[in-house]
């Protein structure tokens, strides 16, 4: 079997994680290219549908990155995001995708190093879990179509 490269979607808050990713870049820190960053105005703006759609289209892992507790630009969007993530983990278990493919992380805009580390940790974790069942099926379907 070819080496499995997970597809990971990271919803990053503009005020912290997205800037931290920028910082990681300026610091020339390495982080896996598996992580696809989507910038959002606040982690609290990430809706369940965005996360579910990511998995439906074949993401192997998703994480939402918001500000440290008490630092949300919009008061408590980060904590709302965490509640949403915890709730969705249960749904993902029911669906058969597995709740451990979804995580919430917190960081500040200055934590470039933490951003790179979280990206590595998540990529490694998902690599261990293997491809999501949806991803596997979508790939099979694509192969069948091609042949």
């Amino acid at each position: 079997m070819e080496k499995f490269e997970p597809v990971i979607v990271a919803f990053c808050c503009h005020y912290c994680a997205y800037t931290a990713a920028d910082m990681a870049g300026s610091q020339r820190l390495d982080y896996p290219p598996n992580v696809k960053i989507i910038r959002v105005p606040c982690s609290g703006k990430v809706d369940a549908i965005h996360i579910l759609k990511a998995f439906e289209r074949g993401a192997d892992g998703v994480y939402v990155a918001g500000c440290l507790e008490g630092d949300c630009h919009f008061k408590n969007g980060n904590l709302k995001a965490e509640k949403q993530v915890q709730y969705l983990k249960k749904s993902l278990d029911e669906i058969g995708i597995g709740g451990d493919r979804l995580e919430m992380v917190f960081m500040s805009a200055g934590m470039g190093e933490l951003f790179a580390r979280k990206a590595k940790e998540m990529t490694e974790k998902i690599r261990q879990l293997g491809p999501s069942p949806v991803h596997t099926q979508l790939e099979q379907q694509a192969k069948q179509k091609a042949s």
Partner: peptide
């Protein structure tokens, strides 16, 4: 409408996971 979207996506993924589209 919102829950329709969520359930639709969840069902789609659940069936795909089980090998059915």
């Amino acid at each position: 409408r919102k829950e329709v979207g969520l359930l639709s996506s969840a069902l789609q993924s659940a069936f795909l996971s089980a090998g059915k589209s």
